[in-house]
Each structure stands twice: as structure tokens, then as C-alpha cells.
Design a protein around this nucleic acid. Structure first.
Lengths: 351, 351
DNA sequence: ATGAAAGCGCTAACAT
DNA sequence: ATGTTAGCGCTTTCAT
């Protein structure tokens, strides 16, 4: 109690001046060392580093950000679900961000959140970020992105535009198309689609890909069944589809729904893949081990995150150059045992 | 080109002085309004808010942090996997953090990362955080947490101690015990365990719970089979266990492994649950829809995250009070169709 | 209930 | 290759 604990107290964190004093150099030189600037002699650098180590010095990021105007951090807006896709993407983003030397700030938008994406972006801006990534956006009241920092939108078409917006990984329609064509190639007359919630761009994308494949091959487009990503909704859809004898192939917009669907089909006495083929989307970790092992399409989350971040960092650090362009991620269809040729038509007529 | 774009340029973000000027008050008053301090007349508050709105003013967090010494953000160290458990926990933490007014900074420790948890903590400290949460820690070279800020460890026993460490959600041994006792209650002579990687506290916890249940009931403790959380490792374990006719019940440390296990058992001709009962852990979204629907144990991730954060925030904001104590999270066993009484012993001897 | 002055710990711009 | 000076935009402390 005889000694103030606050400023100047014994517990105060060491600052760069303290290091400078101990190393016998100017404070600016310490700054140079910690910023890897050139023109510091090896000897001075060593002395500074030693002094810093001795004092347990740590750079103060707030001061650095204030003085430089750069925070060296990137904000990400996620959906706040533990769904495999979004979660994988987030992990990929963290890894990629760290590789490029940026820290990560995360804000969720729970579905139906007040403010939604716009609110999340606002909150990130206030926290201070050099760039923002919007992962798996959903469409809510036309977010007009009106921010000074560059924005990376992962998994939405470029019409999500704004002043400094870059996009990556928008090829999920291609993947959906590949899935549908796999089924068509097996000999199915047409393919039904169990769609995700249409507020999600990811869901719309897959719907588009399915539709494109059907159209390209001149097939009928059966009416779409709506799900909400959950296995429960897949189960409900399966109950509905099981009663329709024309259904021989279904493309589900994610694996969870595909698994629910298969269960409903099986319970209704329709065998998978003998009677009905099912393909999923995502290749979740258990996809290869459910019954039957699921044919599905795999998204290269890591690659998408990595490329996206490269574009974002470029936009942050070279604001006057043209933004880089994203390349389409590779299509990877994993064929397992939930798909097969359609059963022979035993009843040619409908009655 | 006739006008510098930098300082004082037209694109500079408005500061609190600008707001003050427009509102006709002092800069300090603007600060008061934005910090919800008392002693600001309703009229002045309104004028300040209007001015801020007009200019598009946003508080500068770096400056605030520098001046106040508080960052109003919490750092979380995660494992960098998209596994359901860790991902759910992270989402829960984000939500809870935001509810308490803190922003979130996230750092992964990929398994086998240089520096590991200690490195991640160091990096968070440098970024500037008021508290740290270590989610689902793994045991690597005895991390001695040596930091000034409070640390919340989620899902590890308190021996992970340090100066200002609080713990929550360590009851997963209780859940494991409940799972094992469910099997015992069904009449199984003993229960095998398919364990997670023992570097994870979560895995050890479950092992302990299983062991405790067996011991409490005076049962044999079969040798443990090691997995790595993946369905593939569960499958491998299943191949091994299928050949042992004594195995009638298995408790798997997570659902993914349980699903792989069931597949191997089924392929080997051992029916689940008729010949072998299996219980998983986590209640992943598809657990109810795989074949057979999985009996499993559910962790209240949200509740754990919320309680943990309450403790952490308390430790941050009331450093001189005693830390709050965590209550054990509730046990929730979800009984579905992968568990049943053991088959009648048709072959009494081993010949 | 409001304001003035000082300074948080760093980087930037300009010496030397 | 190294040092000096002046802020960055807030909060703090102390007046009033």
C-alpha cells in the first residue's frame, strides 16, 4: 500500500524506452529492431533483443496501431453455427491469416440477429481491422457494404459488390453441377434436389448448379424440396420423396441432409442406392462411414481460404494496384456407395 | 494531387474533437457520452449523438486501449480443427463474449505447432487482450501459464493451474460415467472403451469417467483401444474389436469414432445393437439419423461457454475479489437405438 | 454537469 | 546506421 501499483508501479509492463535504456540505444532503434527495419547493425540488434528478453518486453499493439494507423488484424464475420462447412472455412481463414502475419477478430451473425451482417461489420470496424472477410454470407436486406477497408466475400457471387470487395471460392455451382452430372451419367432420367435455405448464397449456388446440369442435358426439372441444412429436414424431405416412385436420384445440398434423407428412404423401404441414389455435399468426416458410404462432393476449404486471404492482403497492402482475380477451386467428387444406376423400370405405366 | 490525402486529408476518419466541435461541447464530453458515463445532461447527450451520426463517427479502439490500458477483448486459443465439439464451443464463446461486451481474438494451435499453446498465448498477449480462454487444451510440455491476465481453461482439470486461472466445464468425466453406466444398466458384463488421443484432456477425462464407472460397479476393465477422434480410427478399432466375441458394449469417446466403429462391426457381421451396443459422445447433428440412430451423450457447449465467460469476466473486472466457482454442467444422455441388452450367451465356453 | 491539460507507447518524418 | 521531435485519438486527473 505504500507504493502505487499503477503507473510507474513495480508491476507495470516494460516499454520500449526501458529496453532502449538497458541496451544503451535510442528508443527508435528498439522500434527498428522489432519492426525488422533495415539499417540496424547486427550487434545493436542483438543487444536490443537481449535487453528485451531480460525485461520480458512485449510490443504494445494498441500504441502501434494508433501511431501507424494499421491494426495488422483482419475481422471475420461468420454465421455462428458449428456446421461443418462454415467451421472448416473459419479454421482455414485463421490459418491463412496467421501465415500472412495478421491476427483475427471474429464476430458471429446469428441468424435473425439484429443488425445482421451490417452490424457485425460495423462492430469489426470499431474494433479496428485492416480488412474484413465475410464467410458464407446470407442474403439479408441487401447489405450495401460501405466501408473503407477491403472486404473479402467467401462464397457469394460478385453482385455482393462494394467499393473494395474481392471474392473467392464462388465455384460451388460447379461442384453441384458435377454431382448432378454424376447421377445423370449413371443413367437416371432426372435428379431431384434437396436444397438448403435459400437465404444462403451457398444454397442458391448449389441450386443453380443442379439446374444448369439438368438444362444442359435437356432433362425435366422436378420441383425442389426445401431443407434447412439439418439432418432432421433431410429426414422430412425423405418422407415426402419416398412416396414418389419416380424419384431415383437425389442431390442434397449438404451431407447432413443427405444422411437424414437416406434414413427416411430406408425406413420407407426404398433401398439406397438400389432404388434411389443420393449424393451429398461437403464430405463431412463421417460421410465415408455411414450406411451406405456417401457419395459426395468435397469443397477445398483450405485452398479457398488461403487464396481468398491472399487477395484480401493484396488489397490491403497494395491498395492502388488492381485487385487480384480468384481462380475457381477444383472440383472433387468423391464417389462411394450411395449412388448407382437406376433400377430397371418394372412398372412402365402409372397404374 | 493538389491536396494531400493523408493527415488532414478529406478522407480522414472523424475524431471525437470533430464531433465535439459540431456539437458545441468539449471533446471530453463526447468521450463521456460514448462511455455511458454519468453526469451528462440528456440534451447534451442527444446533441453529441446527432453530431456523431452526422459525421459517421466511430470510436477509435486503438486509442482507447492505449489510453485506458484495457482492450475490451478476449483472446481464445483453439485447436484449429472443425471437429464438432471444439467448433461448437468456439461459437458458444463468441456469443457469450459478445453478450458481455467483449470482442474476440482467435488463434489456432494446430497440433504439432511450433510453440503450441504457449506460443498462441504469447501472440494473444502481444495483440492485446484482457483475458484468455483456452478451449479444449491438449497437454504439451506442461504449459506453465505465466501471464498477467486471467485465463479461463475450458475442459481441463484445475491442475492446469497458474496465477489467475479459472476453469469451467470439466464435468465430461461425469458424462462418460453416465454413458458407461447406461451400458452396465442394460446388463452388459463390462464395457470397452474407444478412447480419444490422450494428449487431449477431453479424451483423458472420458477415459477417467469410464474407468470410474467400471470400478464403482466392480467390473473388469478391458484394455483400452486408442483412436484419434476420426471415424477412420473408429473403423480401425472396430475391425479389431469385432473379432473378440467378448465385446458386447463399447463406449466411444466421440460420435465420429462411434460411427466408424459401427460400420466396421456391421461389415464384420456383428449387428448393432443386437450383438454389440455402442454409445458415442457429443450428439453431433447427424447422430439421430445414422444407422442405427446413435445413443450418445450431449455436452451443453453453450452453457459451459456462457458460464466460463462469466467467470472470466468476473476475474477481469473484479481482480481483487475471489474468483467465482464453476458449477458442473448437467449430464444429458440421449438414448437412441445403438444400445440394447447384451445377447444371450449362446456359447458358454470358448471352444 | 462540464472542461483543460497531460500523457498512454508507439511510429513517422526528418535530421544527422 | 542511429537519434530527435512530433503526434496518433483517446482516457485520466484535476479544475471549475
Amino acid at each position: 500500500m505504500t507504493r502505487p501499483v499503477g503507473r510507474g508501479g513495480s508491476s507495470a509492463a516494460p516499454r520500449s524506452v526501458d529496453v532502449a535504456r538497458l541496451a544503451g540505444v535510442s528508443q527508435k532503434t528498439v522500434s527498428r529492431v522489432f519492426n525488422d527495419e533495415q539499417y540496424v547493425s547486427a550487434d545493436v540488434r542483438r543487444r536490443v533483443l537481449e535487453a528485451a528478453d531480460e525485461l520480458g518486453y512485449r510490443l504494445n499493439n494498441a500504441a502501434r496501431a494508433l501511431a501507424s494507423g494499421r491494426t495488422r488484424s483482419i475481422g471475420v464475420v461468420t454465421l455462428g453455427t458449428a456446421l461443418y462447412g462454415p467451421a472448416s472455412l473459419l479454421m482455414g481463414i485463421e490459418r491463412a491469416a496467421r501465415d500472412t502475419g495478421y491476427a483475427l477478430r471474429v464476430v458471429n451473425t446469428l441468424e435473425g440477429d439484429p443488425g445482421g451482417i451490417a452490424g457485425a461489420v460495423e462492430s469489426l470496424l470499431e474494433q479496428g481491422v485492416d480488412g474484413i472477410v465475410i464467410s458464407e454470407p446470407i442474403d439479408e436486406s441487401k447489405v450495401s457494404i460501405h466501408v473503407e477497408v477491403p472486404v473479402l466475400v467467401l462464397g457469394a457471387p460478385p453482385d455482393f459488390a462494394g467499393p473494395r470487395v474481392v471474392t473467392a471460392g464462388v465455384g460451388s455451382d460447379l461442384l453441384a453441377r458435377a454431382a448432378t452430372e454424376h447421377l445423370l451419367g449413371l443413367g437416371h432420367a432426372t435428379v431431384h434436389h434437396l436444397a438448403g435455405p435459400q437465404r444462403w448464397y451457398a444454397a442458391r449456388d448449389r441450386l443453380d448448379g443442379w439446374r444448369a446440369a439438368l438444362k444442359a442435358h435437356g432433362r425435366d426439372e422436378p420441383s425442389v424440396v426445401q431443407g434447412d441444412w439439418s439432418a432432421a429436414s433431410g429426414y422430412a424431405a425423405g418422407c415426402e420423396l419416398a412416396s414418389d416412385g419416380d424419384v431415383t436420384a437425389v442431390f442434397a445440398a449438404n451431407d447432413d441432409m443427405a444422411i437424414g434423407l437416406i434414413r427416411a428412404l430406408t425406413e420407407a423401404g426404398r433401398r439406397v442406392p438400389d432404388d434411389v441414389s443420393v449424393v451429398g455435399f461437403d464430405d463431412i468426416p463421417v460421410a465415408a462411414y455411414v450406411t451406405p458410404p456417401l457419395t459426395t462432393v468435397r469443397q477445398p476449404f483450405d485452398a479457398v481460404a488461403q487464396e481468398g486471404l491472399k487477395l484480401l492482403v493484396h488489397a490491403i497492402e497494395k491498395p492502388h494496384q488492381d485487385p487480384l482475380l480468384a481462380s475457381d477451386p477444383p472440383v472433387e467428387l468423391v464417389v462411394r456407395s450411395s449412388t448407382a444406376p437406376p433400377p430397371p423400370r418394372t412398372t412402365p405405366g402409372h397404374g
